[in-house]
Write a protein that binds this DNA or RNA. Structure first.
Ligand code: MN
Ligand code: MN
Ligand code: ZN
Ligand code: ZN
Lengths: 135, 135
DNA sequence: TGATTGACAAGAATTATTCCTGGTTGATAA
DNA sequence: TTATCAACCAGGAATAATTCTTGTCAATCA
């Protein structure tokens, strides 16, 4: 299925703006912020606005194509979702890498206080090799 | 060791403002935001300012007495740290409960890309009993 | 005592994100 | 083909959370 077919199937229009954002995210492992995306996509698409970036990210989140990360306390970060995965962030430079492993936990119902569980996300923290070198 | 001794030991002054925030957080399981803390502490301490709340939270984070949560995408939430624990948040009302269990993972070094790991935090998601009732 | 330091209140400034408005576009159907 | 309509967009204003700045005060110290 081509990407345009997929989105027609999902019932959303695949506009040039959305395509630009999609192709920027596709294969991108840096988990960029909305601002990062805006700055990059803007180069080839000078009329792009930040609202469009946010709107597009909302649509893509909805469809499950994009994951919004809250691991960085300063701003939300976004990444493509291929298969469910988790993340590891550097405490110093906030570089984020994928942990391509899924964790399936079952919690005893005594712990879940009547919640119905839908998923989980594991945040790993540490120091990247770069930040370790510099002291 | 009394609380005042503890903080003297840690080398920070235990001021009335800090004490008020500490005692509000102590035993509090609701993971309040800075605003929540401000509104509550203010009642008995009308001159308290938001900056003081943020400053105090920074100090207490530093000392490991307070945990800052990023699980709620809207704002940071804070809670006392007794023993290491994890969290479960309702996708709808964003009510957060503690998961009093620690998860110790070891990741194969092929996954950690040269990072030195320092810790982890597991975010569980779901729907609380209240939100499930209301459909 | 006089100097130094840490902490505070108040409010200004910044930053990320959301909201609003008016104008396009492109699919649909008369 | 042309009119209609919904979805989408750019631009910028508004909001909300958080950080920064400044002047003041109180405790501590030489
Ligand atoms: Mn990722
Ligand atoms: Mn907690
Ligand atoms: Zn780093
Ligand atoms: Zn709920």
């Amino acid at each position: 299925m081509r990407i345009s077919d997929k989105y027609r199937y999902l019932g959303i229009k695949l506009t040039p703006q959305r395509l630009a954002i999609l192709s920027y995210l596709d294969g991108n492992r840096s988990h960029p912020s909305a601002e990062d995306i805006y700055r990059s996509v803007r180069k080839e698409f000078p009329t792009m606005s930040v609202s469009t970036v946010y709107n597009t990210l909302d649509v893509l989140k909805e469809k499950g194509d994009v994951q919004e990360l809250t691991i960085d306390p300063r701003k939300k970060r976004y990444g493509p979702v291929n298969t469910p995965h988790n993340h590891l962030m550097c405490n110093k430079c906030r570089h984020i890498v994928d942990i391509n492993k899924e964790f399936k936990f079952t919690l005893p119902s005594s712990m879940t206080e009547g919640f119905e569980l839908t998923g989980n996300h594991v945040e790993f923290f540490g120091f990247c090799s770069n930040c370790r070198k510099k002291q």
